[in-house]
């Protein structure tokens, strides 16, 4: 009974994703059943849509920069949280995690107010990156927390005891052992940024990101089969990235000799 329920629930979870390719390869222009026939036309159309390519490039740049910065911030926060005791630690780390539960619309409008109304700056890819780093850092911190917690502190002491300095210990011992966590954090941040819409919608200037571009396409029924084709590609890419992140995380656990206790969050 329970198993049957869980299977139905998984179907519910996967229903939208499974429908994407169905319509992406359907030659009918209306997104509804019954299906017409098989076509690759919508994918071909993607290849010649120049505005889309620009949006993809914008999104990739934003996602890559966001991933690097938020992972670096995550390393600092997780390291401080796991390794050191200091007054105000719980409050400081709690504050860093707050964007995780803050509605994105609030992040978006508050930054919009500051950037446009108060500072008088133009919106740009930079403003999106700044906001994306804010919401990705808690995810990176959570992943890296697990990595640092799995790291026996006496490993670092042993390296110092054997003559290494603080910095060479970090390079020779700490970094290799948390590397799987770093890779997982990079990939997760990258994926979140690539897919984020609300903040990008509020903060993008003349350079739309991919989700913002998709949003604009959704208003034109003619373009929707193309969006389906694009979505199919994105889903495949995301699953690929996530699988890599998961493999990396598991390798890290195995290397640290720790039993697997579950997923990212």
């Amino acid at each position: 009974m329970l198993r049957a329920y869980v299977i139905v629930f998984l179907l519910f979870l996967y229903a939208p994703i499974l429908l994407l390719p169905v319509f992406a390869f359907n030659s009918g222009t209306v997104i509804a059943f019954p299906l017409d026939g098989f076509t690759l036309h919508w994918f071909a159309e993607l290849a010649v849509t120049k505005a889309l390519h620009e949006a993809v490039v914008n999104s990739l740049i934003i996602a890559a920069v966001t991933a690097v910065i938020s992972t670096a911030l995550g390393v600092a926060a997780a390291r401080a949280g796991v390794r050191y005791r200091f007054p105000g630690k719980a409050a400081a780390l709690g504050l860093i995690m707050v964007p995780l539960v803050l509605p994105e619309i609030i992040v978006a409008v508050s930054l919009l107010v500051v950037v446009v109304q108060i500072m008088g700056w133009d919106l740009s890819m930079g403003t999106i990156i700044a906001a994306h780093v804010l919401i990705c850092t808690p995810f990176a911190t959570a992943i890296l927390n697990a990595s640092f917690q799995n790291l026996d502190p006496s490993l670092e002491e042993a390296a110092v005891d054997l003559g290494e300095s603080r910095s060479s210990t970090f390079r020779l011992i700490t970094l290799p052992l948390i590397m799987p966590g770093i890779i997982a954090a990079l990939l997760i941040s990258f994926t979140i940024s690539l897919d984020e819409f609300i903040i990008a919608f509020f903060l993008s200037g003349s350079e739309p990101t991919l989700p913002v571009y998709i949003w604009s396409m959704l208003r034109f029924p003619r373009l929707i089969p193309v969006v389906m084709a694009l979505g199919t590609i994105l889903v495949v890419l995301s699953v690929l990235l996530l699988t890599l992140a998961e493999i990396s995380r598991r390798r890290g656990l195995r290397r640290a000799g720790v039993k697997d206790k579950g997923g990212f969050l």
Partner: peptide, 30 residues
């Protein structure tokens, strides 16, 4: 040790304050 911890945490903390706490305050004033 506390000093090292603070130095490390201050970077992400400063970022969060600058991009979240400050804008939220701004919204409130606004």
């Amino acid at each position: 040790e506390a000093k090292r911890g603070w130095v490390l945490v201050s970077v992400p903390l400063f970022y969060t304050i600058l991009l979240m706490a400050a804008p939220l305050t701004a919204i409130f004033v606004f």
